[in-house]
Design a protein around this nucleic acid. Structure first.
Lengths: 205, 205
DNA sequence: ACTTTTGCTTAACGCTGTTAAATGATTTAA
DNA sequence: TTAAATCATTTAACAGCGTTAAGCAAAAGT
């Protein structure tokens, strides 16, 4: 029964269409304009069939969030692959994080609750959300270059990086108005600052 | 006609009750649970009378946002008054900012779009939203202690502070789970780091 | 040819923000 | 004192929301 597979393929396509349509609406009109009926309009069905593909609206948001983490993860990986020195890798990765946020503003919003909430506990329901931490941790450990770095030591450094970069990004999404030059300066200063602090601690140990 | 004043007083009270009720509901059930009918229930009226005090729901959010900025402004002022050295003032003020965010989590959310949006452009419609910048700028300029600090120089420093502190706060509101010790360390490290960088630039000029 | 399943729509429920009309009390004017 | 006007408040309604149940027509299975 090859028709079974054909039908499955069509279903997969519709599922993907729902996600694409959602993202399209959000990009055009913002998160608050996203509704089940609008999604149905775009995919040329009526609202109830969406529930054959997703349990509810939140499940759509969750899946978009997952998509976001997959893209971010890939971007981080590519950024890292372009360099050999851990310090350079780390810098490139945080720049990639920054670029991801503006290339995929709407995804970033739902991933990290900027003017928007996906409401469920991401860490618990979406393993992919841990991926940035894992990827950055690897490089931070390499950069630290000591025998047994505590989980806490690595976490602290990641947390420091993340705070300033996420802060910068969410402020920019919220109140666009800071110059590119100002952003570049704060971003690179912060990143290089933390990198240096890691390297210094390495020497002093 | 003293009754005119009595009536006005009652109206003011009802207006305040609407805001209090809103905040109460949000604190108990979160922002997404806030509805006009629920507010009406709490103040023991029906929904339409709310529109005699506020143009729409957004106007209520905006007024709560304004309240938030007034409290924050007062907190910052008090923190500053407790010290004489600009460096100490700055540190105390950012700590006060941090404390405000958790003592008034719901207000902080609507003020800075954490899992929530008030939707309108704050800077344009709410002058009070500029108050933190003004207050911090004063102290930053004092700390810089040079003849003619550019607006851009001050802004850059404020922006650096703000990014890391806001980043830290919004991550904590989003995914509560980092230890108090970790937060304290990142927060004070960041604040002291920026303060030192300002002081160093002062010496080198 | 008859029954079951599938794919999809229509209709409905209870909720939302918001507005218009109706009601009833209070104040003002004659 | 009574009639008119104003005020405060409610009820009813509209359009839209997420979501579910019922219905229907075409396809598939027997």
């Amino acid at each position: 029964m090859a028709s079974k597979e054909r039908i499955q393929r069509l279903k997969d396509e519709t599922r993907a269409n729902i996600l694409d349509a959602s993202l399209q609406i959000v990009k055009e009109e913002g998160w608050q304009a996203l509704s089940m009926r609008k999604i149905a309009d775009v995919i040329e069905y009526t609202a109830p069939i969406i529930y054959e593909y997703f349990a509810n609206k939140e499940a759509i948001l969750l899946e978009l969030t997952r998509r976001g983490f997959l893209i971010l993860s890939k971007d981080l990986q590519e950024a890292r692959a372009k360099h050999r020195l851990p310090a350079k890798q780390l810098e490139a990765m945080w720049l990639a994080y920054w670029n991801f946020a503006f290339a995929n503003k709407e995804l970033y919003q739902v991933m990290f609750g900027v003017e928007m909430n996906c409401c469920c506990d991401l860490v618990a329901t979406l393993p992919e959300s841990e991926s940035p931490y894992t990827q950055f941790s690897e490089v931070i450990i390499e950069l630290m270059d000591i025998e047994n770095p505590t989980k806490d030591m690595v976490c602290l450094k990641y947390y420091t990086f993340w705070s300033v970069v996420h802060g910068l990004i969410s402020i920019n999404i919220l109140r666009r108005g800071y110059s590119d030059e100002m952003n570049r300066q704060v971003l690179t200063d912060a990143i290089c600052g933390v990198i240096k602090s890691i390297e210094q601690e390495k020497v002093s140990v």
